[in-house]
Nucleic acid binder design. Structure first.
Lengths: 286, 286
DNA sequence: CGCGGGCCATACCCGTCCGGTATCAAGCCA
DNA sequence: TGGCTTGATACCGGACGGGTATGGCCCGCG
């Protein structure tokens, strides 16, 4: 006893829960009622809790059953998709697209949609990463393509520009800088900047934070953390002017930072046909 | 053959993949090597694809194996958490918190964190919903509490105000309205508003869209869709002034719309002790 | 008021499948 | 080449999943 939960039992459970009737559920599962009853009991002893209330005209979910139902359904959905994804991967028909947190925006969605139209048989996985990895898993081999921003150390990587984003510094609306038409990083010397995690691409970290590696600067992994820190602590961070900002924050253009480019990147060495095909969407379009 | 994939096999697979060695994996799984080899083969025939390349000193993942690994790990994580969640639900120690898309902000996180400190043994599930359901599953019984905004039809619901948000209309920066200090819904008569899905709470829909139920108005389910439509098509939507906006959009205060309140809502009839306890966090605080 | 029909649970049987031991085939290295 | 490693194969026993037959319960009907 106390064996691990298996998908078979969860499939049974979900069927019974939707049918609210063990007999009918058994019918739908192409089996007889008694083993199904037993399976449900197994699940109940497994969890140490009743999942159904037995009524004269069927069964109905207990509170624990409701919770299990909410968890089991998406779990089974994932498990079903799993088979399809793996078989497609085996045929080389899977493209893994890394996406830097904020870059999964309209441009990214459009690209994915365009590629799906062109090659409907190809499965596309989008993996989002935080600010600590500008190449979004591309170097580590976790993805085939990365939707990201410059600048980063790009040795061994090929890039195609999607668009160019001027950048600015994010400050609270009450900050003296906020009213200026534009400013410079130099003029902000001595202020507290956000800090990116150790090990982050140095080119990348230097661009966004004007880092002088003072360790007391607050650490952030996501844009949300950066903005929150800007709103509460008055810390500085550089962001694209197109970045969505909560009320109370403004983005003042920076004159001495070149714009950041939103790019598609991939490993330059022997790209797969799918990667080439996807990359052409960008190179051809812009 | 072609039996459904089971978690047992996936657990085996993940262990082998992390160990890169069938023998050691078998050891960690408290079993012998041959059945494990067979299990992996089963999985491979099941998917119709090789998952490992066999090398003289172990095994290494094929591309299909990598994809399966990425899917299997989170799947197993979920399955493990499942047991814990259900047992807690059985003890009445689960609180399901619905959250309207944008309301899962700082206030929400603070509330959840505060409640966790007070009652560490209680599992909290946060379910996000789109704009079509202002009560975030509260009426349907999918959640015990809802973090949402007024106004909505609140018969049978109890609410506690968290904060008050003035609202404005979101327009492109180039829109003539954008430069005004404030405006009114009346002054915007005849313009195209966003439309919320049919069946949405009428009080709610009327508040945010100044709807005159013209069916050609574009449909939106999320705030992102609203903002995108505002940026591209110049459609109007009402939003809290605190809403984060991408560059190129501004939110002009509205003089003839009362502010929206961010509230915690729950079913007024016989709330559970946990619900009362959570609600007190809000009532006591503000 | 008992009787029939619906529900789920129990009892028991059989075939399959899982995991064990023993062994084999193949690559590396001394 | 012989010993060591690796994973793969062959075969066996026990556990478990699903089958049939039946029991216990509640409802409604005659």
């Amino acid at each position: 006893m106390a064996r691990a939960v298996e998908l078979r039992l969860l499939r049974y459970f979900v069927t019974v829960a939707t049918e609210r009737h063990v007999g009918r559920a058994a019918q739908r599962l192409h089996m007889t009622q008694p083993p199904l009853s037993r399976a449900i009991q197994q699940l109940e002893t497994e969890f140490g809790a009743a999942l159904f209330d037995r009524t004269p005209h069927g069964v109905e979910l207990t509170r624990a059953g409701q919770v299990l139902m909410e968890d089991a359904v998406p779990l089974l959905d994932q498990a079903d998709r799993l088979r399809l994804r793996v078989t497609r991967a085996a045929d080389g028909a899977v493209l893994r697209l890394g996406s830097l947190a904020d870059t999964a925006d309209q441009a990214g969605h459009d690209l994915v949609a365009a590629f799906r139209r062109r090659q409907p048989g190809v499965e596309i996985t989008v993996v989002e990463t935080d600010l600590s990895d500008p190449t979004a898993g591309l170097r580590a081999g976790r993805v085939d393509l990365a939707l990201t921003r410059t600048p980063f150390s790009d040795d061994g990587l090929a890039v195609a520009t999607i668009r160019t984003d001027p950048v600015g510094v994010v400050v609270a609306a009450a900050d003296p800088v906020a009213t200026q038409e534009s400013t410079t990083v130099a003029a902000l010397a001595g202020r507290t900047w956000i800090r990116l995690p150790d090990g982050t691409d140095p080119v990348w970290a230097a661009y966004w934070t004007a880092a002088d590696d003072r360790p007391h600067h607050p650490l952030a992994r996501t844009i949300q953390e950066c903005l929150r820190s800007a709103a509460w602590n008055g810390t500085l961070v550089i962001a694209p002017l197109s970045q969505a900002l909560p009320g109370g924050l403004v983005c003042v253009p920076l004159a001495d930072r070149p714009p950041s480019r939103v790019v598609l990147a991939w490993r330059a060495s022997q790209p797969s046909p799918l990667v080439r095909s996807f990359a052409r969407l960008v190179s051809g379009a812009s």
